[in-house]
């Protein structure tokens, strides 16, 4: 199948190096300490953060740092065909673990000993790149909850189809079976905290694809920063002196 037309356009009309439209909104869940909705094109994810709060299971309590937990789930209505999703299937457990590790790397857990931070992620619409969208939503929600972090984590995916590196794959491109590289970076520190690919790629091409994904992450980071600054300013001026 042709994923990039001879004119250099993808199936949804984007250029190979073009991202989908992103949109973020802070404060979607009233009762949570921090929450956010993040959209990348048709992919839509809602994140809620609770904590730092008392550890629910005393045996898991860590005396020198906070416990970070993450739960990823997909809504029944999120995909094209509606289906019941059992909680804790292999795919969602794996993604939960990946996101937990990524977020734990950037949270300053040693500042909140003997407490626990819960991150709940729910995919409302799945159109490829849910992993990336979840990480971006989780970053926003953690920042909203006022949890100290080393840096914002942002994530974006890239692929390689029809001998062209493509940024931010959607569902159709994702299911083409080509390589899908998900990258998570700390933009300020310029470090990679997440790198996933379940296919083979020659070294030189891989470098190109990863570079592209990192550019995408930086674009997301700029947007997220704007949203957070806007939110902080709003809260501050509303509060007044």
């Amino acid at each position: 199948m042709e994923y990039v037309s001879p004119e250099g356009l993808r199936l949804d009309g984007r250029r190979p190096m073009e991202m989908r439209q992103i949109r973020a909104e802070i404060g979607a869940v009233a009762k949570a300490d921090g929450s956010a909705v993040f959209e990348m094109g048709n992919t839509k994810v809602i994140a809620a953060v609770y904590g730092p709060r008392e550890v629910q299971n005393r045996s898991q309590q860590l005396s020198d740092q906070a416990l970070v937990r993450c739960e990823y789930s997909m809504a029944n209505f999120s995909t094209g065909d509606r289906m019941r999703r059992p909680k804790g299937d292999r795919r969602s457990t794996e993604i939960s673990l990946v996101i937990r590790q990524t977020m734990e790397a950037c949270i300053l857990t040693h500042l909140m000993p003997r407490s626990q931070i819960d991150i709940f992620l729910q995919v409302l619409q799945a159109d490829g790149g849910t992993r990336s969208a979840c990480i971006n939503a989780a970053t926003l929600a953690l920042a909203d909850a006022g949890i100290p972090m080393r840096d914002l984590v942002t994530s974006c995916s890239a692929g390689y189809l029809n001998s062209t590196p493509l940024l931010d794959l959607n569902y159709v491109e994702d299911s083409a079976g080509g390589p899908d590289v998900t990258v998570g970076i700390l933009p300020k520190l310029d470090k990679v905290t997440l790198l996933q690919m379940d296919a083979k790629l020659p070294m030189d091409i891989f470098e190109n694809v990863m570079q592209l994904a990192m550019e995408g992450c930086k674009a997301v980071a700029n947007y997220i920063r704007e949203v957070l600054l806007e939110n902080t300013k709003t809260l501050e001026y509303r509060r007044g002196v």
Partner: peptide
Amino acid sequence: SELDGEVVATMCGVVERVNKLVYVRALRAR
């Protein structure tokens, strides 16, 4: 926190300065 000799914020909030002390007052935190 400190990064490459610069003072960097680790939270969203408002910078407050008291003499030499520089800190960030978080808004929506616990």
